[in-house]
């Protein structure tokens, strides 16, 4: 199996390299010390397995995964993160708690080989990130976008509104428009509900951006934003908005 390592700490990478070298069925393709390089290497080498640290500079492990078009088998390596462990356990992705033994490492590899044969469900990764946020009682505070070779980090405060576009969501932000492969439901669940309201089947709005609300037709309203944009609000969405003020 072909492997890459993504971890910001040098000794942690060295240990994994040592363990990988002991097995003759594994080949280390490359290693990265941050998520940006990790994305690049994964696209370039198409590994079977990634050893991935969660806490890393700038991009964390989950955010890095969001940027990958397809997911190899992921084995998370983390030092101490009670929330992460809960999230992993629910979604049956393997994880190595640092420090770990060679035996435990081997077990993870056996599981990876098993998984490699059966092909894993790709949706698991987004579910995992969702459940991680939920378990840690945090809200999404930024969104990672990949545009060509560039990776853009957008703080959620910069979001003006979101519009559903089939399987994607169009994000209107202070930095411009971006298409993100994610569902409206997932955004609705992860964003802070006191700041972002789903006012329509197709729209989530940042309440800081609302200028005024007008009656549009019977049973439907028009939300006028500070930017001048006008977006539709359903009856239920209008009710949700009214509860906020």
């Amino acid at each position: 199996m072909k492997v890459i390592i993504i971890d910001d700490e040098h000794p942690a990478r060295e240990l994994l390299k040592n363990f990988i070298a002991r097995r003759n069925d594994m080949e280390l393709l490359a290693e990265a010390e941050d998520g940006f390089k990790g994305v690049k290497l994964t696209m370039e080498y198409q590994p079977d397995v990634i050893f991935l640290d969660i806490q890393m500079p700038k991009l964390n492990g989950f955010e890095m995964l969001e940027l990958l078009p397809s997911h190899p088998i992921i084995i998370f390596t983390t030092a101490f993160d009670a929330f992460a462990i809960k999230a992993f356990e629910m979604h049956a992705v393997d994880y190595l708690l640092k420090p770990f033994s060679y035996e435990r490492f081997n077990l993870a590899i056996e599981r990876a080989i098993e998984r490699n044969k059966t092909h894993q469900d790709e949706n698991q990764m987004t579910e995992l990130a969702d459940s991680y946020l939920q378990k840690s009682h945090q809200h999404l505070d930024r969104v990672i976008i990949k545009k060509g070779d560039k990776i853009i980090i957008i703080p959620v405060e910069h979001i003006i509104y979101l519009e559903a576009e089939d399987d994607y969501v169009m994000m209107y932000t202070q930095e411009g428009r971006f298409l993100k492969e994610k569902t409206m439901k997932s955004f609705e669940d992860q964003l802070d509900p006191t700041q972002f309201i789903r006012i329509h089947r197709s729209f989530i709005v940042n309440i800081q951006q609302i200028e005024s609300i007008q009656l549009y037709e019977k049973e439907s309203y028009l939300c006028i934003l500070k930017t001048g944009d006008k977006i539709k609000a359903s009856k239920a969405g209008y009710k949700r908005l009214k509860e906020m003020f």
């Binding site: 700490e9 000794p11 942690a12 060295e14 240990l15 040592n18 806490q55 030092a79 101490f80 993160d81 708690l97 640092k98 420090p99």
Partner: peptide, 18 residues
């Protein structure tokens, strides 16, 4: 900080080999 402690122990475990 447990994160610090366990990461350091991981460094130790790596260095014992190399």
């Amino acid at each position: 900080n447990p994160h610090f402690l366990f990461n350091s122990l991981n460094s130790v475990s790596s260095l014992t080999l190399s």
